[in-house]
Amino acid sequence: MNKNIILYAAILIFGIAAPFVFPAFKVQLSILCILIILAITWNVQGGEMGYNTFGNILFYGLGMYLCASVQVGMFFPLAEWTEGGGEKTFVHTPAQFFQGFAVGLAVAAIVPAIVAGLIGYSILGLRGHYFAICTLGLGVAAGEISGGIEIIGAGQGFTTPPFPKVGSLEARGEFFYFCSFAVLRLIIFLSLKIELLKLETSSRDK
């Protein structure tokens, strides 16, 4: 256990120091955090539960579009924003940007969870390769369908609001890095809880 605490403390210190030690790689480090999150969550589903899925990208994409849509839609008309050049016509004030981002993050956490509940009710009864192919179908269907919805930019894509001019030039990278890192810490904490829960249940069953 002591070893683990040292390891987690080392990761925490590295995580906090990383953007200052490697200032040029903040974006890559943020992506690294997000990829670790995706790997941990896949492990919970594919590794712990035995449901091998190819469709997690559905929830990932849902979260992206929801967060950006809420961030824009709270203050400006979404359809005009995505029509083209919206980010030039409408400009978020710093307060609007962060307020929208916070609400967007919350929505992006809640709605995909509900969608996952609904989908899970229907497809978790599938076994093995049928589940794998079904989730592959869901993931690609989500991509294809979102490419046809006009209000979120269709195939052209969605330009997210640019970061407001606050702090130094480095502020944007640092902000997104620490957001990703915080979520990573949260996910590691939750996955450890799940591990402990599993241990407790298994010892109780014995």
Binding site: Y130, I133, C134, G137, L138, V140, A141, E144, I145, G148
Partner: peptide
């Protein structure tokens, strides 16, 4: 997209 959704619906 409708082809992929049809697969999910059939399953």
């Amino acid at each position: 997209g409708s082809v992929f959704l049809l697969l999910v619906l059939i399953l």
